[in-house]
Nucleic acid binder design. Structure first.
Length: 428
RNA sequence: GGAGAGGUGGCUGAGUGGUCGAAAGCACCGCACUCGAAAUGCGGCGUGCCUUUACGGGCACCGUGGGUUCGAAUCCCACCCUCUCCGCCA
């Protein structure tokens, strides 16, 4: 949610910010300012009428206490006359408030100053690159590899669930599990994140607070009783501070969770239809930080390094991209994507996204902090990142570690999690 | 799922139609006492919003949303959540 006061006092950053996201900044700001003025006028009118009523009511109480029934009757008639004024004033206030809220709730966050201006992914900036793509002659993709091994079955998944699902079996299922454990252990033991096992279903408030609602309801799966399947553990992890006032001394809070993620992928038909790249359900090890406002930029850099560490340990070539204004997600002020090398596509593909959300979600969910001895509170900053998407990591690992015979080598870092297994597809 | 109890400020907890934004205690802050601290005493101390150059004024908030009433923390309805007992169950 946006700070209407800040927007009122200094609209330029909002105009620029929304312009940079391909929206009409000046148009939106004009609309918001007009609605805001309307709301405040309605508020004042309503409050004036209420003050009048409250005053009369108080006098009625006094008159009754003084047994002055005639005066009480006179005042009651006076209040009665106010009734329609009150009702219309209230209706106007509600309408204006609703309109302003609806508009603001659907508008994306303002990019940070140091985010490159751009339209789409072509304007993203590579900030660093790690590792060198392996020389693989005629690389197979993970589908051919997995089906060749008899351990990856899209057809069985389609029969029971439909498109965009997969069945993993045997050593591939075990590899997926090992990857998840490895990521979780790395982030908790070496990077100080607190392991959390959160609910996979959340209510409207949690989905709204993490800016998935109202705009992206069609991207989510909803249960018959109205809850939402989490599209990422960002939702429950960030919601840990929803409505809370945390002690500033305890910041930053760092949470991680390995959970399934559920996405409807509405509107993605035709994109990445083959294989495990884009699924309705996948595991992800998520990182979430809750920080004081002045900590968030540094925490963001740290978080990216925590995600990069996974790829480095797994010895998978990747590059780190700073997303341009037009390619960033709805809530982000600044986002780094990690892209891993996929030999079959001869390109880098997104495997992690780390965003500094600023106070955007904190305002929506009313998450604040208070310094010891201080009276006031302020909104915290929230950050989230993948550390990493397990399904895509599995894909990257299979494709990068394949040999001519279609076997998959297991990188050193995973050996503790897969004792005795050096290759998938027969030992040798 | 059934029966009952309950949701009040940072916390505990009183309040059951009008002078209650809310007693009291704890916590916290300031002052006094003290070499200092503790103890004690005095004072202060909710949030959001509107309005005002300022002092200030006003509105809302006692789980959420409706309703009754001139007036609701207080009465009524629905929902959510917590606790106790029963049932069922991984």
């Amino acid at each position: 949610m946006h700070d209407i006061r800040a927007l009122r006092e200094n609209p330029e950053p909002y105009v620029k910010g929304w312009d940079s996201k391909g929206l009409s900044g000046s148009g939106l700001v004009g609309e918001i300012t007009a609605l805001d003025a309307k709301l405040r006028a309605a508020q004042t009118a309503w409050q004036t009428a209420q003050a009048e009523r409250n005053d009369a009511s108080k006098k009625i109480g006094q008159a009754k206490a003084g047994k002055d029934e005639a005066e009480a009757q006179r005042l009651m008639a006076q209040v009665e006359a106010l009734k329609t004024t009150l009702e219309t004033a209230q209706a106007e206030e509600r309408e204006a408030s609703q309109a302003l809220n609806d508009l603001l709730a659907g508008l994306p966050n303002i990019p940070a100053e140091d985010v490159p201006w751009g339209k789409d992914e072509h304007d993203n900036v590579e900030v660093r690159r790690w590792g060198t793509p392996f020389a693989i002659a005629k690389p197979k993709d993970h589908v051919d590899l997995g089906e060749g091994l008899g351990l990856m079955d899209f057809e069985a998944a389609a029969r029971m669930s439909g498109a965009r699902f997969v069945v993993l079996k045997g050593e591939l299922a075990r590899l997926e599990r090992a990857l998840g454990q490895f990521m979780l252990d790395l982030q908790t033991r070496e990077h100080g994140y607190l392991e959390v096992s959160p609910p996979l279903m959340v209510n409207d408030a949690a989905a709204y607070g993490t800016d998935k609602l109202p705009k992206f309801a069609d991207q989510l799966f909803q249960t018959t009783d109205g809850r939402w399947l989490i599209p990422t553990a960002e939702v429950p992890l960030t919601s840990l501070v929803m409505g809370q006032i945390v002690a500033e001394e305890e910041l930053p809070l760092r949470f991680t969770a390995l959970t399934p993620c559920f996405r409807s992928e509405a509107g993605a038909s035709g994109r990445d239809t083959r294989g495990m790249i884009r699924q309705h359900q996948f595991y992800k090890c998520e990182l979430v930080s809750i920080t004081a406002p002045e900590q968030s930029a540094a925490e963001h850099e740290r978080m990216v390094e925590c995600a990069e560490a996974v790829l480095k340990r797994l010895e998978l070539p990747f590059r780190t991209m700073l997303l341009c204004t037009g390619d960033m997600g709805f809530g982000a002020r600044k986002t780094y994507d990690l892209e891993v090398w996929l030999p079959s596509q001869e390109t880098y593909r997104e495997i992690s996204s780390c965003s500094n959300v600023g106070d955007f979600q904190a305002r929506r969910m009313d998450a604040r902090s208070r310094a010891a001895g201080e009276k006031g509170t302020r909104f915290v900053h929230t950050l989230n990142g993948s550390g990493l998407a397990v399904g895509r990591t599995l894909v990257a690992l299979m494709e990068n570690y394949q040999d001519e015979g279609g076997r998959i080598a297991i990188p050193q870092a995973l050996h503790p999690y897969l004792p005795g297994l050096t290759h998938i597809g027969g030992q040798g």
